[in-house]
Structures are given as structure tokens and as C-alpha cells.
Amino acid sequence: MTTATGYAPNRTLPLRVEIVRQFKRRRTLAMFGLLLALPWVLVIAFQIGPQSPGEEQSLRISDLATQSGLNFAAFALSVSASFLLVVAVALFCGDTVASEANWSSLRYLLAAPVPRDRLLRQKLIVALGFSAAAVICLPVMALLAGTLAFGWDDIQVPGTGEVIPALDVLPRFGIVIAYAMVSQLVVAALAFLISTMTDSPLGAVGGAVGLWIVCTILQAVEALGVLREFLPTFWNNAWLDALQPELDWSGMAKGASVSITYAAILIAIAFRRFRHKDVVS
């Protein structure tokens, strides 16, 4: 008998168990609370802010936000995609292994034994699931809050002011959310990689966000020319193309390509490193 009765490697650390382990954490709950509250905070901000005199027909996304629930959701996504969602995704993916190492519970899981590849796989699936939930819940809540506050109306496109019927735009909204998720894959993979290398959860989150910020800064260096297209942050706002009258895939295709490329390699490195790592925490 080489194993304890009832032990099977592929039954270890079921997703359900990992979800419960992570979901009861304060920072998980706080992050979701923040994401769900933000649209309401924005609604209040728009309501109490000084109303612009008359119908100012500016076509900036922030000025159009109060036109309809859909416009508001687009606005909420545009203001949060560049940083808040990055932090949320980095938190869920960067914290997952590093915090176990920090609590010393990692070694007991590994000695249980949960095979290392399986441990990473299950944790990655759960972390990505939480990240996806974060990316979804913000615009959906914004849509709800916006519709309650500003009514259900057709969307007015920023920049050109064209109007797209609300029902046509709903599937586009699905594309926007899907693209937002794909584009955050880089952050997720990066945070996850750092998470397997450090014992400090905040180090993993901070490292991922820090590298993200560095990319954003590099992206502003126009001298880099076409090289900037390969920065993971460059196509972050490409989802705006999905809200144009003519759906333009090219930016999103490039963004998804860059994102998947980085994510696949970073995750592979994470698995490879973790297999051989001496767990000393």
C-alpha cells in the first residue's frame, strides 16, 4: 500500500474547497464590495455635481455618462479598466499562492499531498474565476445603477455622437466585457508568477501593478514607435472600438493576441519554476 486509503492525486484541492478558502477572506469581500459600490458612488457624484448649464452637447465619454444606463456603464468601465480592475485582478491572482506561503499553510497543502502542478492549476482557475467575476460585476452593476438613475436609452457614441439602439449594443457590451477580461490576462499571469516566487502577498500584487505602471509609462514614449504595440498595456482601451457604429476588431484582436502571448509564457514559467522550487516558507 503506497498511499493512504481513499487518496487520489486528482481529487486533491477541489475547486469548491479553494473557492471557500479564498472567498471568506476579508480582502476578497472588500474588493467585491468596492467594485459593486463604485457605480453607486459615481451615480451619486453625477447627481450632486453641479449640473452643466443647458444641454451642453460635448461628446466626451464622461459628459455622455448620464445619457443612459449603457452610456454610464461604458463610462464606469473606462474609468476603472485602467487601474481599479488591474488592482483587483492583481490582488486575486497575486495573493493566491503567496498568501498561503505567508501563512505557512502552503507546506501542509503540499505535504497533504496536493501535487504541485495541481495546486497551481486549481489556484489559477479559482483566481481567474474571481478576476472574471470582478471584471463582470463592475459593468453589470454600473448598468443596473445607471439604468435606475438615468433610464434605459440608446447609447450615444463618444466622439461622434452617433446613436446606436440599446438592443444592438447589448451584445457589444458582452464583447467589451470579454475583451476587458482577456486584456487583464497579462496582469493575472504576471501577478500569479510573482505569487509563486515570493512569500509576500503584497509584494506579488504590488509587483504586478508596478510592472503595469512601468508599461503604461513606457507606452507614453513615442520614440519606441511600433514597439509600443507589443507592450501589454497598449491595447487596454481597444474595447472602445466595440462601441463604435462599425465594430472594429483589429485593435481588440491585437490586444488579445499580445495579452494571450504574455499570459501563456508567464503562466508556463510559473508552473515550471514552482515544480522545482524548494518550499522553505
Partner: peptide, 12 residues
């Protein structure tokens, strides 16, 4: 939860 993570039957 630790026991659940081992994937072994609760009775054991």
C-alpha cells in the same frame, strides 16, 4: 477544509 483539500473521504 484541510481534510477536504486532501480529497480523501470524510469518514477517514
Amino acid at each position: 477544509l484541510y481534510w477536504a483539500a486532501t480529497g480523501r473521504p470524510v469518514a477517514d
